[in-house]
Design a protein around this nucleic acid. Structure first.
Length: 159
DNA sequence: GCCAACGTTGGC
DNA sequence: GCCAACGTTGGC
């Protein structure tokens, strides 16, 4: 099983929205090739996701989600009326893919970006590297576990 | 609102 | 294939 971090602006779609709707969310509109490759080629059902709120006050990890459906072509790329329409993407040769993401857990304690940056164990996480804008990124298992521990308000494990 | 970082586009 | 211009991301 792999671990990921996926960014969303909570005023567009938050972890509360995901929980409330009670069904998986198609993660459409991603228009970056690196992120596309992760969704199309690497993500599998059951992979665990840190659900990250960006452009928020504060920004940070709000909870955990899970991949519920493997990558398939993003239909919004084919729809000329859609904000994310891309004429380069054709149904017979799709350029853009999405996965479906389901609710797992809303953290008891929101883990702010400042807290992630302050935790020495998380210094090499992609999300705290400067200039890192990728909206879908892999997370090391030990980093995933540490962020979840913080979000549940559990005591640090012994070194 | 600013702006640094970075990805993409398009002229050549 | 280079690279300047442009658009976007996202923290602050």
């Amino acid at each position: 099983m792999r671990y990921w971090l996926m960014k969303t602006e909570p005023n567009e779609f938050s972890i509360d929205d995901l929980e409330r709707q009670g069904h998986p969310e198609p993660w459409d509109g991603v228009r970056n090739y690196t992120a596309r490759n992760f969704m199309r080629d690497k993500m599998r059902v059951g992979d665990q996701v840190l659900f990250y709120h960006s452009n928020a006050e504060p920004s940070g990890v709000a909870g955990v989600a899970e991949i519920k459906k493997r990558g398939y072509p993003d239909p919004t790329a084919f729809d000329s009326a859609d904000k994310h329409f891309d004429p380069k993407s054709k149904p017979e040769a799709p350029a853009w893919y999405l996965v479906e993401v389901g609710f797992v857990e809303r953290f008891a304690r929101f883990v702010s970006l400042a807290e992630v940056k302050a935790n020495r164990k998380l210094r090499s996480m992609a999300v705290v590297q400067r200039g890192q804008r990728l909206s879908v990124q892999p997370v090391a298992p030990r980093h995933f576990a540490e962020v979840v521990r913080m979000g549940r308000g559990e005591a640090p494990a012994d070194e």
